[in-house]
Design a protein around this nucleic acid. Structure first.
Lengths: 340, 340
DNA sequence: AAATTTCACTAAATCGTTTTAGTTAAGGTT
DNA sequence: AACCTTAACTAAAACGATTTAGTGAAATTT
């Protein structure tokens, strides 16, 4: 079953060099020999050993992808697009799940560099605040493309979403629906995305001359359903009145809605709720969840496109030239903000 | 930044062989030299080139994983477990998404073999009915572990779920809740899993002396929400009366429930509904969805365990010895079958 | 006909490690 | 003192492909 190039050469009474060149269509091999070699290779099922080829070509045709949470549908959708496009361009994907842990992320980067991937596409873990491992990637002449959760200070290609604009759109939508007492369940100080959504919320209030009330802003410790439920309960029990709620993620919004429904509060008429991300689940529940779509597929597609363009640059001019891309979000109006 | 073993040897005035041996703790290198080499390697950030190491060791410390649908939460959960355990055992994961397509699956297998992965863990696409590519894996002395959607005829390690037992449990649960006119939305003739669930349904009816009515069985063309909605509508409009429904997947069940709710049919009291897979979404909707849990994590964990055990066998005794594992499902009772 | 060019190859080095088979010097045995 | 061990290395081949620098013969030019 396994047959090497050398062995083929021996059987065809040719030198290994001739066989290699025939397979790679070098001009100094006759058409007759090329056809002979190719048809024989097909017949015996010869496949070049990628590892061995690498030693000379220095290309593995492999991309490393690191994602903070592989079960998160948003990252999942990005990954799906990345994989489809990688396959189309004959690249393999080595996948790493950093589980939002900096140390695991660092370990994965080193592992990928050791495996000599041609590039690394990654979204940073929440607690990543030093970037030595990223600089290390660039120092190894490996392409780096950051997506979604990026480090703005690192000199590499990036694709991310305008989170502030997203937060603004979400909040303004609530205001347009007539809400005036709008709460926000925000994230912590990491990553930047969660801060930006909060800043969008602040700006929408400010632009619409609604005074900001810090008591209406609660901080989530995770983006889970349970957190949404807990914070909604906390807010409700504190007695602060609201008629609108913007949550940092769809899951948090779903948790909050569950609590409000248990209290027989009418969603959206008493309290309108909007999430962020356009997770599939938001379309399954009742009332269906208004949200901000982040164009996951687009992020994945652009990440691959940037990689390919950098890879080409590296090959032809032996240098990296990076590019930043900021994608706008889209408002998805559903029942949870459809007041009557 | 990049430094090779050879270069280190030169700088330390040692032979490449001595450096290699020192790093790999060979007994014929003095402790002093080992310490010198190791500390110098650490200092200059030396990392062995995996591709080069492979040429001699023939081990890439890489596992190829092929999944039919990477966005499916069930496979996603399996993948997550596989990745965690692989990482723990110092293996990298090369991921392939076959998108339920045989030809893509075949292509991925060949690609992985060419990359010389140490093993392939895969779940078959629905339209895979020839197994030459699987035999090819074994012929290349590469470990093969099939999970969930397996080919029983292939002589390799397997982990899968007792789908017939799951279908039986689901149907019997409806019967115990008092349902007597139970419909089933089944899958097509591929994969075996969907047939087995149907057979479990048939058996539960038979054991409980409920006569089988072929008019109550509809065939889905996909496992989507839309399909569930369409089939529920079709069944409703045909005028056939039912008081229970067992769907091949949770998504199909959610689609059916949506249609019934639109018709103001009381779930679970007029019609009780149960799904299959225990997808997260089933817990988010109202009424929450009863279902059959397939222990995705367990499947992933066992797949890795089987791989490691086969890999060890291959190394020590130079042969493959496979093992089959059948996991039992668990019934998850929720609101969609909780009659009052 | 001699010189040059072109064609179609081969030989050998190379990529970065690992491993087998020496080699040398020191120490121990008789 | 001659012989044998042992410790601690080194030299060189090997893994499987690619690539540079030749090489000999045929074809073409002058």
């Amino acid at each position: 079953m396994k047959i090497s190039l050398k062995e083929m050469a021996k059987r065809l009474s040719l030198s290994p060099a001739a066989v290699s060149k025939a397979l790679n269509d070098y001009p100094d091999i006759s058409l007759a020999t090329k056809n002979l070699v190719k048809s024989y290779a097909k017949k015996v099922g010869y496949k070049a050993n990628s590892q061995a080829s690498f030693l000379r070509s220095q290309k593995t045709k492999t991309i490393g992808v690191i994602i903070p949470d592989i079960t998160n549908p948003f990252f999942n959708k990005i990954l799906k697009t990345i994989m489809t496009l990688a396959q189309k361009n004959n690249y393999s994907i080595i996948l790493g799940n950093s589980k939002e842990s900096f140390s695991l992320e660092e370990k994965l980067v080193n592992q990928f560099l050791q495996q000599k991937v041609d590039g690394i596409l990654m979204s940073l873990a929440n607690d990543t605040s030093q970037y030595k491992h990223l600089e290390n990637i660039l120092a190894n002449d490996t392409v780096l493309v950051l997506f979604d959760k990026v480090a703005k200070l690192i000199n590499c290609s990036k694709v991310f979403v305008d989170d502030k604009d997203g937060g603004f759109k979400a909040t303004e939508h609530l205001i347009k629906k007539g809400c005036t007492k709008i709460a926000h369940f925000r994230g912590g100080l990491n990553p930047q995305n969660s801060i930006d959504r909060y800043l969008g919320y602040r700006e929408a209030l400010s632009v619409n001359k609604i005074s900001f009330d810090p008591n209406k802003v609660l901080i989530t410790s995770s983006g889970s359903i349970e957190q949404g439920y807990i914070l909604a309960k906390k807010l409700y029990e504190s007695g602060i009145e609201i008629d609108g709620l913007f949550c940092i993620t769809d899951m948090v919004a779903l948790g909050a809605i569950r609590f409000f429904k248990e209290q027989k509060i009418d969603i959206p008429n008493e309290i309108s709720v909007i999430g962020f991300s356009n997770t599939m689940a938001g379309n399954l529940v009742y009332p269906s969840l208004s949200t901000i779509d982040q164009k996951a597929s687009k992020i994945g597609a652009e990440a691959v496109r940037l990689f390919l363009s950098e890879e080409k640059m590296l090959k032809t001019e032996n240098r990296l030239e990076n590019q930043s891309l900021v994608l706008k979000t889209t408002l998805i109006k559903r029942e949870s903000t459809q007041r009557i």
